[in-house]
Simulated scan of single mutants.
Amino acid sequence: MKKMIFSVLAASLSLMSCQNTEEALEAAPDSRALTAEQMASKSNFFPAVGTANEQYGKMGPYQVSTDAVLGDCGGLGGIAIDILQSINVLDQTIQCTNNLPYGNGSPISTSVYYPSNIADLGKLPVVNFVGGILSNEGNYAQMLKLWASHGFIVVVSSDFINTLPEMHLLGAFKASQLNKDTQSPLYGKIDMSKMILAGHSAGGGASILTSSISENKMKLIDPDLKVVGSLPIEPGPLAVSFTVKAPTLILTGRLDVVVMPWYTKIHQNGIFNPSPAWAATATTATHFSPTMEISKNEFAGISVAWLKYTGYNDADAKTYFVGPNYKLKADPQFLQGLHPYRVVRNQAANNLQ
């Protein structure tokens, strides 16, 4: 019965993919031999591994504050969470905000995560993140806190659909507002000229679409706004990556049965991007890996490396992406060698020094 429930949920999610208290805290594809439940739960049992996760897959030097109010996932949406937890697709640490259908709040929401000692810091790069269709912004809290702990301001927006650019545009507008609000702890602290557009699933596809908007049009939101990077994680297929105007890291999961990596490879692997692009598939990642606790999130370390590279031009992070022996190509967390989903980068990325 549980397998049947999961199959229905996975099929529904696959179809749909196609298309304020402040808190401080801290080898060849073989997946077809597994059942959908086994594939989805595998990531819940195996820890994240590899070079990037060892270096960056842990909380950074900053404590984190947020205006998101996080709690248990109740309401109608919570039923799906309970079912997925019962079959080990989701771990027990996932949280939700009170937005519909997980609570009785507005279905449209925006929250922000940032270093708690922001008053002592200069301007910080901003990550503009949108989650998957049917998701709640709180589902990604652990990954967003990780990013903020490494010195980023993270704005997360959701309207429960998250498929088109409007939520990323809302996030950009929210960041601009906070940066100009003298009553906000983020007043004058957001570097709008260093924005990374990120997303998961439907939000990943939306990050590709938003990263394809011209710089002049984005500056209508804020004259200082500049997109310096794009991070689509297991992106929904309503976008093609060759229109993206910023350096792009496309991440997929070998055990993803919702947005399967072969589909992303066909039209989103970045090979034909005019901008530098990389693509990597995590060995044990499922579609729900970005919601896991950090030790089980295969994308945790490499996502931090990407943000530090694009947001700060950090020398250590840069070694994962630039140079003839770039570390991503040797990281055992990701498929390598002759595998059809092996790590690749395009010519524009090859040319970087």
Rank of each mutant, 00 (worst) to 15 (best):
T163W: 05
T51H: 09
N325Y: 07
T281G: 05
Q183R: 10
G105R: 01
P237G: 03
L307T: 03
I161D: 03
L352H: 08
A198I: 05
L352Q: 12
H168L: 14
W147K: 05
L121V: 09
G151D: 14
L197D: 06
A52M: 12
V156W: 02
A282Q: 06
G138H: 07
E234Y: 06
V154P: 04
S31F: 09
T182A: 08
S116D: 00
I190C: 05
I79L: 15
I271E: 10
V154E: 07
G253T: 03
L352I: 06
N128L: 04
A119N: 05
G71H: 05
P125E: 07
T310H: 00
D159N: 15
I302S: 07
V69A: 11
S158V: 06
I79T: 13
A119G: 03
T286A: 15
P165R: 01
D316K: 13
L90V: 15
A317R: 07
H339S: 08
N162P: 10
P237R: 03
I161G: 01
D120K: 15
F160D: 00
H150F: 06
F321L: 04
I5G: 10
P290F: 11
N216T: 07
V227D: 01
I161R: 06
K194N: 04
A28W: 07
Q353S: 12
K189I: 06
N351S: 11
S12M: 13
F152V: 10
K174H: 14
A24R: 15
L338D: 02
K3A: 15
V257R: 14
V126A: 07
Q38G: 07
I271L: 08
G204M: 07
N104P: 01
T51Q: 12
S212L: 08
I5W: 08
Q55M: 15
V155Y: 04
A36T: 14
P61R: 14
G323T: 11
